[in-house]
Amino acid sequence: MSILSLDDLRAIRNREEKELKKRDIHGRSVHVVVGMGTSGISAGAKVVLNTLADEIEAAGLDKVILTQTGSLAPVAEPVVEVFSKEAGLVVYGDVSKADAVRIVKEHLVAGKILEDKRVEVKED
């Protein structure tokens, strides 16, 4: 007679939990920011952003916040910043789609900074 069985309820929870978790930013310690100014987008930042989003989700990294911002460093676009409390700010330049995959796999998952893509930013 009951419409939902225990398994149905658990299935709904599993499905919806994933969606709700994306909104729970509490305790997330790693921020990935993509420069999405006009020049960034024309250099391919949109592809990078979407690739990062897909890869982060696929890797199940629920401690990572992905956000976009305006122009970051117009010399080496697309630019991706990775900020964590441990390593501070790391800025990557000329990021391609393949690099975006590497950022997730090497930096975010394995914790190894991609020295070849790193660019120095001067603080004002």
Binding site: L6, L9, R10, I12, R13, E16, E17, E19, L20, R23, D24
Partner: peptide
């Protein structure tokens, strides 16, 4: 301030009805 109160799925996702289970 974090879930949509008019959507039971969101409550369930936020561990809702787990206690009842």
């Amino acid at each position: 301030g974090s879930i949509d109160p008019e959507n039971i799925n969101e409550y369930i996702a936020a561990d809702g009805y787990k206690a009842l289970e």
